[in-house]
């Protein structure tokens, strides 16, 4: 191959790469493959921790994600709610992300209705609170003072599900669905160690490697990272496939990653071949 062809290849219009990436995503969606996958230890540990919660207990859910991280985290969020609700575990939920309430509230309503749970008695959503680390610290100290009302404007004292649950440490577990800051890192830093809390985290792939040290140090009792983590959790909650009307979006999508990753690896290899051949040819000249 001529040198100038290689140089041109290296400097090709990046829009061809964009087009290739688009095709690499669309093709496996239009012609799906269903390769099986295994559950890693961190997700299994998260599932086991939820499994051990006795029926009738209450957990605190901090749903800290937005539409941008929805494909990675919503499947976990839904599967986790199915898991909690079918075990008869109650929950009090809140969020530190302003764009989360309109996203999570309909999901809470849909799934709690499916399991016949009553708002205020079996679950409640306290809504959004700003202040980041300060809000987390306040959740650790005093939830009724921090959230005097729920998302619907009810006084927190009027909700049966919150009675007897004043601080984060009163809950059986904290489940944090975290798309970044503020999220799992801040929960671990601010209140996990101080109150010796049991925290499970589902996070994006980008944050996954960052939180593994927390898991290994025992500061998290389970960790699900990115779409594969969500798909593995879906598999654990629905080992025999989804019931009617339930869509396992991460399971459906995780195999699309095969082609996407393969495309990126091919790009890296081609880019390097072109780079080294060009460099060698230039050195010879």
């Amino acid at each position: 191959m001529k040198l100038d062809t290689l140089v041109r290849f290296q400097n090709m219009d990046r829009r061809w790469i964009f087009l290739g990436m688009g095709i690499a995503i669309l093709i496996p969606m239009l012609f799906p493959m269903t390769l099986p996958f295994k559950v890693d230890e961190r997700v299994q540990s998260l599932y086991d921790a939820v499994e051990e919660i006795p029926a009738g207990s209450t957990v605190f859910i901090s749903a800290d994600f937005d539409p941008a991280s929805r494909p990675e985290l919503e499947p976990f969020f839904r599967a986790n709610l199915h898991h909690l609700l079918r075990k008869d575990v109650k929950f009090v939920a809140a969020t530190l992300w302003p764009s989360s309430p309109p996203l999570v509230m309909p999901i809470f309503e849909e799934l709690t209705a499916e399991y016949g749970k009553e708002y205020g008695k079996d679950w409640c959503f306290l809504g959004f609170k700003d202040g980041k680390e300060l809000a987390i610290k306040a959740i650790g100290e005093n939830i009724p003072e921090t959230f005097p009302q729920d998302i619907k404007g009810n006084k927190i004292g009027d909700l049966a599900v919150t009675r007897g649950y004043k601080q984060a440490k009163d809950f059986a577990m904290i489940i944090n669905i975290s798309a970044g800051f503020p999220g799992t890192r801040e929960y671990v830093l601010q209140i996990q160690g101080q109150y010796d809390l049991s925290i499970a985290s589902a996070t994006t792939a980008v944050s996954g490697p960052d939180y593994i040290p927390f898991y290994k140090a025992g500061q998290l009792n389970g960790l699900s990272a990115g779409m594969p983590g969500s798909a593995q959790y879906e598999l654990l909650v629905f080992p025999d496939g989804p019931p009617e009307g339930v869509r396992l979006l991460a399971t459906q999508s995780v195999n699309v990653l095969n082609v996407g990753h393969a495309f990126i690896i091919i790009l890296i290899v081609l880019g390097n071949i072109a780079f080294f051949v060009t460099r060698q040819a230039e050195e010879v000249e």
Partner: peptide, 27 residues
Amino acid sequence: VFVPLNATMFALLAFYIASAAFRAFRA
């Protein structure tokens, strides 16, 4: 309005990371 705009803004990064992998990832 908010959901598609927010999600697609971040989805653009998939395309840019592909371009970066081709151009900048050299051994």
